[in-house]
Structures are given as C-alpha cells and as structure tokens.
Design a protein around this nucleic acid. Structure first.
Lengths: 333, 333
DNA sequence: GACTGTCATAGAATCGTTACAAGTTCCGTT
DNA sequence: AACGGAACTTGTAACGATTCTATGACAGTC
C-alpha cells in the first residue's frame, strides 16, 4: 500500500480513502491512485483489514453431513448469498470430524468467524446452541428451539406434513405407520403433528397409528421398516409415512429386499424432496422444501445481524407436495 | 492479552511465549499466565495473529457443485483432514454462483486463503489453473493437466475402467456404447482408454464401439441414452458404459420411461460409487473411488505445500469394482 | 482584507499479536 | 572474585491496513 502511495505521490491514507470510498479525494488524485493500484497489481491484505475492522467477512456453516443432499443444497444457497457480499463460507461437520461443541464458540470468540449458520441434525445438542447465541450471531436453519426465540429460517413443516398425509388417507389407506424423526428436533415434532392432524381429519384416531422414532438416516429407515413391515400381510401397514426422504429411501431399500412391492403392497412417502427422490424406482412421493432459498434467506438474515440489525426471522417458507409413484391406492385385501 | 499480562504480572511477550510455546518461561510464571488466561477467558485474536504470521490457517475448496455426492464426500474428507490441523475450509462453487476465475486468485493473493484444493468439473477452464498455481499452493483432485506437472490426487481411473468394462465383456455383451465424460478432462480420457483396452482384450475392435461425449451430469445421461437406445432391439446396444454414476443414473431414468428393463434388456455401469448407487433399483454396478480418502490426501498434500514442502503427488489410489444388479448376461436375441 | 467554513490531504495513532534485541538474574568456572 | 553464558524477561518495533486529528488551501462573506 505504501508502494502504491509512493507511486501515486500521495499519502497512504489517501489510498485507503480511494479504495474504501471513505473520504473526499480530488478526481485527479483518485485517478492517479487507481492507476498505481492496477500498475502494481496491488490487492489489500485482508488480514490487516480484518484486524482494524474487527470482522473477517467470513461465516461458518455447521452441517451434520454434506452427503445429505438436503444439507448440500442449503449449503449452496448459503454460498451463493454470501458470495454476493464477498463473504466467505467455512463449513464444519462436527459430527463427522468430532470437533467439540466449544469449537464453534471458539471460532466466534477469536474472530475467525463473524457468525454462524447452524443446521441441526440428530446429534445436535440443542441446549448448547443457546450458549452459542450469546457469543455471536447465530441463525438456525430448518429447526427451532421451543421456548427460545432464536433467529431461524424454517419451512411450513406442519402444513407439508398434513398435506402429504392427507394424500395418503385420501388413497384409502387405513393401516398406517409413522417413521418419525428424532424426538428432540422441532421439525420432527411439527411433522408428526401435521400427520396426526391429517389422520384425524380423515376420521381416524391418530393414537392408533404407531409412531417409531428414527434418526433421519437411511439406516434407521431400513431398520424401522423391518420392525413394522415384518408381519402377516393382514396386519401389515399399507402406508409408511417417513419424516424425511433418507428414511423413506431406507424403507424402499428394505422393501426391495423383502420383496414387497411399492406402491402395490405398501405406499411410502418422504419429506424434503432430495434431487434423487424423483430418480428412485419408484419415484418417491414427498414434500419439497426450497432448500436453496432457505440457505439464501438464512445467510441474508445472518449478515444483517452481523451488520447490527435486529434479528427478524422470516415467515416459514412454502412447501409443495410432490406426488410420484411410491404412493398408490390402498390394496383391497 | 494485555489484561492477561497485567493479571499475571508479566509482560505481554511472556504471555505470547506461553501461548505459543515459543520461548523459555519459568514454570511458576507459565502457571500464573495460564491461570490468568482461563480466569479471563482469554482467546487470542486470530486476525492479529494472521497479520503477523502472514497466513490464515484457511484453505479454499473449489467444487463444481455440492449436490453431487462424490464432491460432497471429497469435501468431507478435506474438512476432516483440515480440522485436525485447526485449519478452516472455505468452499466456493464458482459454477453455481458465477464467481469469475480471478476470484480464487484474488483470495489467494490477498491472504484470505493459504491454498486451494481444486475439483475439476465440466466447466473448469483448465488453462486458468496453471495461472493459479503460480499465485499460491494449489492441489488438483481427481484430475490432471497433461503436460503440466501440477500437484494432484487421483485414482486409478484407467484400471477401474478396464475392470468394469471387462466385467461387461465377460457377460457376453457384443453391442456396446460408451457414454464418456467431457473430452477435455483427464479422467474422461483415462476412463475411455481403460474401456477400450478391455474391449480390445475381449477380442473386439474398440473403434466399432460408439463413444458419446457427455458432461458428467444426470441430464446428459438421459439425453445420450435416448440417442443411443432409441432404435430397433436388434441394433440396440445391450450394455451402456457410463463414465460416471450420475450419467448412469440418467440412463436408468431414461430406461424406466422407455420401458427398457435393466439388466434384462440393457446392462448399465457407472463410475464413482455414489452412496445412492446401491440404493437404486436395480443397484448400480460401478467402480468405487475412495472419495473421502482422496480429500484427506489432497489436504495433507496442500498443507504440506503451505508449510513449504515440495509438492509430491501421491500415487493414484486404488479403486474397486462394485458388481450389483444393473448388469447381467447379454440377452440371447 | 480579515474571518470563517469547507474540502483535501498528510501524519500519526491504533488494532492485537509476534519476535527481535537488549537487559536481568543466577549459577558454575577458573 | 571476576567472568562467561545459560535461562529468563521485558520493551518495542513491526505486520498492513483504517481512521482520527491537524493542517493547508481556497472560496465566500461582511
């Protein structure tokens, strides 16, 4: 920077003013500075800049795992929104790499990160999140902490769940089973309520429908499917309502092995609409969440908070049922 | 830090020595410093530290898109290896967000990133990579630039391709078609050579086998499948060799719509072994690449280079054919 | 023509660390 | 007893920007 100043015959402060547009500079000098900058190929040292500004133009994205396409899509949305503001996105997958919980708080407190976007997974300790929000700006995606008003971006889980369950009941299914998500997660709770609402609306008693708790992963879908489907055809549920697509995929995988036809023997629905959902055989009936947009919204919210705005969670975003081939009329039996 | 020094009754430099283990400090003073640190909950300001050290303990991961699970797995490996060394990983998806090519070079030159891990995709301009490597440490994953000895981590593409193609020929298939990757990518070239080697080894003339150029995406698999499969059964290829799993998934999706049975009418193989490959119906026969390990290896290589080591690309990693249900004996016809 | 106010500019302090150089203490040699 | 040299400590100068303050120039006003 000194070199630039020398070459342009001005003071370093003038260079800074030009570069940041933070002070009055005469047109001819501004011109000279800009020339010197490009002649020397000068780029400001961001470390020094960060030190003065007390911010690093970098946010963290905490994500249970990236191989889950739902999280990957949110991540892409986050990156997109951040890059528009020249903000970098650091990702950490604490469950995969075993970073402790203090890790994030440390990053925040030691000024390596300006803020955090948090995607909750099965192993998230929600309680520690409250701590985090006291350390720095944190936005929650697709999750909420009942009782605490943390800034968050969520979708209409309950409505989506209700609609997809209505689709099932409207097909005449009477023997149902619900493969729910981790009980401590808000999304799991919301979806469950939605399912039960729809079941009640169809004139059935929700309490007679078994609810099994899964962990949102494929393996748990496979396992729970075996628990609930391994019985005589007469008692077997004709429809399985899964709280997310991964578990539904696990169910499909089990059905293939167990030689149960989908949807002739059993209908299956998921939630999320992963890009692969439509490519499965049969195509998975599910609820689309606009993951990318949620990532964008969360990032805008977070960057606003970093800039000093009051946290203002946007209203839940819309979801859309996607009817495909994994659901069909209840077997006559 | 000044506060810590005051509280411990020592100079700030002593505190620094304790924290970095970079100078001799008497045991009792070290103790006092550590006490003060924890009493005050002090954490060093990383921005200041970065300024002095001229490094940011952060690397960039350039990835065409995260929804591709293969890239996501590599990303997880990168994060894992980086976090072990307290290095952060920033991801940018230039194709998705439209960051220019100069973007990465800027990040490197302005000290926001110490180095870069580059995953090549269909739209990567390989030439600009050579520029990049002159700006700072860059490691290429699953790609090479013929003629330039860039540090890179690759797998045995050719051997894997040869083995999977041998599997096809050994099943008696005579009419084949190859759905290759982008011609300018090294992996695509390698795999193609492998396929042709196997075909020749089976006593057929590789030049009689049609090769269609795809872009490694699902949509191109669907499109090319329609081009090559939409013909009378007698002329139709009985096996499609796809240069990656996504294209193979596209092919399966086309076959479902066209009511072609896999593998009875046509056998399909892919490459990569995405986590979803085994969950498809039928399970996809493919070649497993140890994506996660490749990410780890690339990161270790890069961090070594950042630390001043000579770039030493590791030998190509092993791949394993995964035989599943998407391949079967050639139809008698 | 002196006074005031605005606009440009330069100079210097500052951000929180690290690391060098210089100083202190203390102990073992000769 | 004087000396050399470890073993510690400390003060302070960077690191490369931003920003506050002071100064100078110039125009407008009475």
């Amino acid at each position: 920077m000194k070199d630039v100043a020398t070459r342009a015959g001005v003071a370093v402060s003038t260079v800074s003013y030009v570069l940041n547009d933070s002070g009055p500079v005469a047109p001819d000098r501004r011109q000279r500075v800009l020339e010197a900058v490009s002649a020397l190929g000068y780029l400001p040292n961001e470390s020094a800049r960060n030190l003065k500004r007390r911010s690093v133009a970098t946010i963290g994205l905490v994500v249970p795992d990236l191989v889950n396409q739902y999280f990957a899509m949110i991540a892409e949305g986050v990156e997109q929104a951040a890059s528009e503001k020249d903000v970098l996105v650091v990702f950490c997958t604490p469950e995969a790499t075993g970073d402790g919980e203090s890790w994030n708080s440390r990053l925040l407190r030691s000024q390596r990160l300006d803020g955090l976007i948090y995607l909750a997974g099965a192993e998230t300790r929600m309680a520690s999140l409250v701590e985090l929000t006291r350390v720095g700006p944190v936005v929650l995606v697709d999750e909420k902490l009942p009782g605490f008003d943390l800034p968050s971006v969520v979708s209409q889980n309950r409505r989506g769940a209700k609609e997809i369950a209505s689709h099932i009941t409207s097909l005449g299914h009477k023997r149902l089973a619900i493969l729910g998500g981790p009980a401590e997660l808000w999304t799991a709770d919301q979806r469950l309520s939605g399912y039960r609402e729809a079941i009640a609306a169809a004139g059935m008693d929700p309490d007679t429908v078994p609810v099994l708790e899964g962990d949102y992963r494929i393996s748990s879908g496979e396992k729970l499917a075996s628990e609930v489907l391994d019985c005589p055809a007469k008692e077997r549920p004709t429809a399985l309502i899964c709280a997310n697509d991964l578990m539904a995929i696990g169910v499909l995988s089990y059905c293939r092995r167990a030689e149960l036809r989908v949807p002739e023997d059993v209908s299956v629905v998921g939630f999320d609409d992963l890009p692969f959902a439509r490519l499965l055989t049969p195509g998975l009936t599910t609820v689309r969440q606009p993951a990318r947009e949620m990532g964008v919204a969360a990032t805008k919210l977070l960057l606003g908070m970093v800039g000093g705005d009051k946290p203002m969670s946007p209203p839940p975003v819309d979801v859309t049922p996607m009817i495909r081939e994994s659901t069909g009329p209840a077997p006559k039996a």
